[in-house]
Structure formats: structure tokens, C-alpha cells
Amino acid sequence: MSILGSRLKKLREKHNLTQERAGEIFGLTKYQIHRYESGISNPDPDIINKFADYYGVSADYLLGRTDSPNPPEKDDIPEELNTLAKINQLIKEYGIEQMGFFDIEKWKSLSEEEIEEIIKHFEWVVHKAKEKNKAAREGTED
């Protein structure tokens, strides 16, 4: 078994996923997951990045280039990227990928009303963030 395969299996099991469920999440078959975990074949870089993002580890960790699952914190990471990482974590926690969040075909089946509801929700979230940021700026100008 390869380092990559061993780590993929360990992470999948840590997240209580079957090979079949992992395949569904990553758009692969159970057989492909098995082949990656057993070291019979290697995923392409895009799939490795999907694994890393989903499991919250670095691609370097998956590939055996480091034994640290997470890269050290960097002070120069823009706040926007930290926010995106938090959103990505929420997507995983709430199982949005199970609803086809990234599946364009499933988005096409939404009604106009459902799309409007999503747009309104996003607009509300952005509005609340702007209010919070404005209040924070005003609080520092005192």
C-alpha cells in the first residue's frame, strides 16, 4: 500500500465514510476509491486536491511530503481566504455536497422561486456581513 493510499483510507475511515459514500462525494466509483487506497492506481492532481480540501489536510500530507496533516498557519493569508475555508467547512458539515451543491445538472432542476430564495438568502448574508464590518469600522474610529 502506498503512503497516499494509506492516508486516504485512514482519513476516509476517520470521517466514517464507506468507499461507496466516498465515491459519491468525490464523483468516483467505489472501485476507484479501492484502487487509490490499495495503491493500484493514483488519482490525478485535481482529485488529490478534492481529497485534501474535503478532509482538511494538505496535498503534501496526502502525498507523503510531510507528516503534518495541516500546513503551519501563515500570517499573510488574507481574511477572505480564511472566510472561504470556513464556508467550505460548513458545506462539508451540513452535507451540502450530498444535495449536489457542485452538480450543475441538479441546479438546473431548481424552480425560479427556489433560485430567488437562494439569491435572497445570499444577499441577506452579504448585507449582514457589511453591517458587521461597518459597525466594526465605526467602533475603531472612536
Rank of each mutant, 00 (worst) to 15 (best):
I118E: 02
L84P: 03
L81D: 15
L4C: 07
E93W: 04
E13R: 15
S58Y: 01
F26V: 04
P78N: 12
D67T: 12
L63A: 04
H15D: 14
S2N: 12
E116L: 12
V57D: 00
E131V: 13
K86F: 15
G95T: 01
F51W: 10
H121D: 08
G23F: 08
D142G: 10
P45F: 05
S38E: 05
E105F: 12
I33N: 11
A22V: 03
E131C: 09
I87T: 09
L84V: 07
L28G: 00
E138K: 11
P78S: 11
D46C: 06
G27Q: 02
D44M: 02
E13D: 04
V126S: 09
P71H: 07
G95I: 09
G95P: 03
D75W: 13
E117F: 09
L28M: 08
L11I: 05
S38G: 07
R35N: 12
D67L: 08
Y54R: 08
F101W: 06
N88E: 10
L81A: 13
K10S: 13
R35V: 01
A59D: 02
P78R: 09
F102C: 02
H121G: 07
A59I: 03
I87R: 01
T83R: 15
R12I: 01
S6Y: 00
P45R: 14
P45D: 10
E117M: 14
T29S: 15
D46M: 10
P69R: 02
D53R: 11
A59R: 08
F26K: 04
F122A: 15
K120P: 03
I3D: 12
G5E: 01
E37Q: 06
E105Q: 10
K74H: 12
I115H: 01
S111W: 03
N82K: 14
N16C: 07
W107H: 14
F101Q: 01
E37I: 05
T29Q: 09
E105I: 13
K92P: 03
T140H: 11
E112I: 13
T140V: 06
N42A: 07
D75S: 15
D67A: 08
K50V: 03
E123A: 02
I119M: 03
Y36V: 05
I3R: 13
G100Y: 00
E97L: 13
A59P: 02
D53L: 12
H127A: 07
S2A: 05
S2R: 08
E113I: 11
Y55P: 13
E114T: 11
L8V: 02
N42W: 00
K132A: 12
P71T: 06
E138P: 02
K106L: 15
K106D: 08
S41G: 06
K10N: 12
V57Y: 01
G23N: 12
I33F: 05
E138N: 13
K106I: 12
L110S: 05
N49Y: 07
E123V: 00
L63G: 00
F51K: 06
A135H: 03
F101C: 05
H127W: 07
A52H: 03
L8P: 01
I25Y: 11
P43C: 00
I115A: 01
T18W: 07
D60Q: 07
P72W: 15
